[in-house]
Design a protein around this nucleic acid. Structure first.
Lengths: 352, 352
DNA sequence: TACCTTTACGGGCACGTGCCCGTAATCCAT
DNA sequence: ATGGATTACGGGCACGTGCCCGTAAAGGTA
């Protein structure tokens, strides 16, 4: 029944320090206008109380809205892979909106390096407080990162990392290990005398991802004394005709290929070829939960898909920015996603 | 430079309806004291504006703290499986705390039905606003659910479902499909003439989970014309000696067992037996990312573990309660978790 | 001393909602 | 008609923080 006279937060700090809340506020946001002496006193009290600001009240009182930008490849005819991260970003946006955070999404063309650079410029001009990027092109990203560092704008990478650029956080796969897992699945029931085919289909020359994955793939063969011969092919066109032509040639040269591994989401093109040429006995493994791939999973042409939760990548990437800018909490710098194995039997529950 | 005179939220509604904010508030929380006429008018305006209450302001203004309860099995010597959902619950708690939500965790002994009932009673006496339960025992849960329904307290189930009890939400695996996936992995490189062994190790007689999983397992064999003979064994003691004794017998009777499937996280006990009796050529698949199991995954005794993201289950379960009680948003009733496949090669990135 | 600038700080409103308390208006029974 | 109960509604403070504005005190210059 007694009146609780305890104050919380800023008011309590102010009471203990014999100052007004405004002064405490100045110290909290290290603004000028406080003498060193009172500043020290207030800081001591803050530390002693282990004061945690009330984010609700803070966001409510502050009319300034925090705006975040995200730069992703556009969904293309070839693949709707990037719909998933976008979806995760939207999910994050919905959560953050009520706390006064706005999100703007920028898209670029994966086959056009210039569009990437151009969008980055737009973003830098937009005065955003935090930025999420899928760093598809290394040099352009490097310039961008330098500029962000100068302006003290935090940025996170998703899907592929450029380790020396000191992003606030990386959220995506450990590509090398991912290739390693692919090799395990591929060889799990592979006969000893069969050959293995690695296929990379990509217009870009910037193939850091591919190299990492292949490296991991081969590492598995080494680590496990797997004796199968490995054949590799690079295909620089992504249309079906080109792919089919190259593959016809490879299969002609190598009669005893027992399994194929495609290093990205274009595995459905290979699946299509295998089906059309009546080679579905060849085990096939590739990447990403996109609808074309799932179709071939369903019809047993693709054996396994490896996925890295692209939806979650988008979500977590945005949340990392939120954590630093709004909650002011630390985030982990490396955030490797699980290497998920998707089959005909479990895909319906997969939450990409 | 002009003064923006737009009002937001409740004030704007009040202005348009020519009433005070207090009256609008009464309608929003459907409290008494508003005539039908003004109520209708206000509701119309709310709908027209598509008014979304500001949760920040709401939680800030309302001094009442929302308290949630969670009931889980205690971590036992046999398995630390339940540490994961608990961890997810803690994660959710950390997020919700700043919004005035408190979480209290209750634990029971999986081998003691009474402790389950007792804790449920405590929870009901605690006056919680929402409850998360791992419904291990059907009858006790049924009573509890009835009482909750009477008191209009929302409750969610995780890990296993009792479909007819109308929980707010179920978050956990589709057990039948999970068994189906187990069968796929088990047979993926199984020779045709080998036998398959299903092992259930559990003290409880309440084995709804087990039946569902086995049903799915067998369904795979049917659907795919898999001809292998299936042997099944129920072991009602969980200690190593008992398990070893039973297994010795089974393996004695069936010389040509090529693969074994354990329906729960006690697969490490079987792994131990296989290792000790030099039968590591037998493929072994079981459930859950617990450290004993991971150890045998590492040493190639267990081939695959199937997991259902127990951490996420705890997190999402609590968030479902938060969504209804705080945000007042609808939640999906069935929330089947992905059926994850964990191997020696990808476990280090698994985020249970 | 008179006046101006800078420093250091307090007062107090605003954010959008919850909810207590007060009161005019209406209804009902005597 | 009088009094009491009920209904329908408004006023206004509070939540914890951000930040504008005002001002006393200190310092500087002539």
């Amino acid at each position: 029944m007694e009146k609780e006279n305890e104050l919380f937060g800023v008011k309590e700090i102010a009471r203990r320090a014999n100052v007004s809340t405004a002064t405490v506020d100045r110290v909290l946001h290290n603004r000028t206008g406080v003498s060193e002496k009172t500043k020290a006193k207030i800081n001591a009290i803050i530390k002693e109380m282990d004061y945690q600001p009330n984010i609700l009240a803070s966001r409510l009182a502050s009319r300034k809205i925090i705006s975040l930008a995200a730069l992703l490849p556009d969904v293309s005819e070839e693949t709707d892979f990037w719909a998933a991260p976008l979806n995760g970003i939207r999910r994050a946006e919905a959560e953050m909106r009520q706390y006064g955070v706005q999100v703007q999404v920028f898209l670029f063309d994966l086959n056009d390096k210039d569009s990437f650079a151009e969008q980055l410029k737009h973003i830098l001009d937009g005065g955003f407080h935090g930025i999420l990027v899928s760093p598809s092109f290394i040099e352009e990203t490097r310039k961008f990162a330098t500029e962000c560092a100068r302006r003290k704008i935090p940025y996170v990478f998703i899907d592929s990392d450029i380790p020396d650029l000191h992003s606030l956080s990386y959220i995506g796969p450990h590509l090398r290990k991912s290739g390693y897992v692919g090799a395990k699945l591929l060889t799990y029931r592979l006969e000893a005398e069969k050959k293995v085919l690695i296929i990379n289909i990509s217009k870009e020359i910037d193939n850091y991802n591919y190299l990492e994955i292949e490296d991991g793939f081969r590492a598995y063969f080494n680590d496990n004394n797997q004796q199968n011969e490995i054949v590799r092919i690079d295909i620089r066109e992504t249309d079906y005709q080109s792919v089919a032509r190259h593959l016809t040639y490879v299969f002609h040269l190598n009669k005893d290929i027992g399994a194929a591994f495609v290093t990205n989401s274009r595995v459905h093109t290979v699946a299509s070829f295998l089906k059309n040429s009546h080679r579905t006995h060849v085990s096939l493994i590739g990447y990403d939960f996109v609808k074309e791939n799932v179709g071939y999973l369903e019809s047993n042409v693709i054996d396994f898909l490896i996925c890295h939760r692209p939806d979650d990548q988008g979500y977590r990437g945005m949340m990392a920015l939120y954590q630093t800018l709004v909650v002011n909490a630390p985030v982990t710098k490396q955030n490797y996603m699980p290497i998920d194995i998707v089959t005909k039997e479990n895909y319906e529950f997969y939450q990409n």
